[in-house]
Design a protein around this nucleic acid. Sequence first.
DNA 1: TATGATATAGAACGATCGTTCTATTGTCAA
DNA 2: TTGACAATAGAACGATCGTTCTATATCATA
Lengths: 195, 195
Amino acid sequence: MKVKRTLQDVEKKITAFFLDNGRMPSYSEIAEIIGVRSKSVAHFWVAKLLDAGILQKDSKGFLTLTRNPRALKLAGEVCAGIPVPAEEELRDIVSFDEYLVRNPQNSFLLSVTGDSMIDAGIREKDLVIVENNREPKNGDIVLAEVDGNWTMKYFHKKGDMVVLEAANSQYSTIMPRADLRIAGVITAVVRKYHK
Amino acid sequence: MKVKRTLQDVEKKITAFFLDNGRMPSYSEIAEIIGVRSKSVAHFWVAKLLDAGILQKDSKGFLTLTRNPRALKLAGEVCAGIPVPAEEELRDIVSFDEYLVRNPQNSFLLSVTGDSMIDAGIREKDLVIVENNREPKNGDIVLAEVDGNWTMKYFHKKGDMVVLEAANSQYSTIMPRADLRIAGVITAVVRKYHK
DNA sequence: TATGATATAGAACGATCGTTCTATTGTCAA
DNA sequence: TTGACAATAGAACGATCGTTCTATATCATA
């Protein structure tokens, strides 16, 4: 009933602990989760992981994960034959939370209803991230109150005239009166298949 | 030059530390970041935050943040007048990383080129999350190699016959031969405006 | 001004931390 | 079988942790 412990095993268990608890385990806890009774054994394995570059220590000597455990690999690294986007921006995506939301305090989520933005690729049940306290620019998609209903429209401003335009030919362009209320600007769209 | 310290000030500084360092600060560090010289002062303020429910302690006594600092508010809580989706699923979204990616190890990112899925709301420069090691079902969008090119298509299987269909009327339906390669199933789409 | 509440400083305490040491066990190749 | 190395156990150490204490400074209000 002997099991051979590998670097990957230990890494996975520490990563799992981090994801579960939101912090790194102490050496006592590492000993516990890898199934040994001595802290020095945990120290022994952590030294290996540090040596392999899988773990790091920050400036205060605390253990940290070298790579974001939720980071996704890029296509080019995974599957030869798939064209590599090679966009520099992509290399920095380690967290969708950071990538999608610039200003968490001033943003909120909205589940899309209706088809007024279908031609812009925004569909029913998509989630949109709306950021308030942001000045809409021409061509932005905004969340606005029109005739008592909240909808999403393209925003255009010509001089002092504001025009709200749907991305759906079945809707007509709207030129609201003074009581226009704009709740925010859509900064991102996410859609999940396979719930 | 006296500044009045408030609960919100301290909360913000601790949250900022957590976001920067990926861990909670020690009491010494809290004293440092709020600008006092004594650990007991940090303890004094942490006690207040614990009392207010802004901070918590986990089972081991370690400080943790009560709420995810990156979590987005739901529309209904933020802006009265905006229709509340009231979908139960929405209440659990605290992290896009967790929400979008079920299986980080077997998923990768791809930047979309081409317009073959435009009618499915997947546009050029969108990011799609592709999960391999998943059996495609009818109606799924898959990443497949067709005639030496990688494209995204709807997947349909009728008996033993596999049909790949674009979501763009300008493309014809493809019924590949035996050398069909499917790299994975698209599980999510994200689009960011305002880079 | 007097008084109480609030906020800060600094010292002290036991507990736990990370680290290091010795000793023992297990594994595999010579 | 034997020797070399890897892996584990357990004890010990100083350092830092979180906590608690007393004492002082600041502020609002009576």
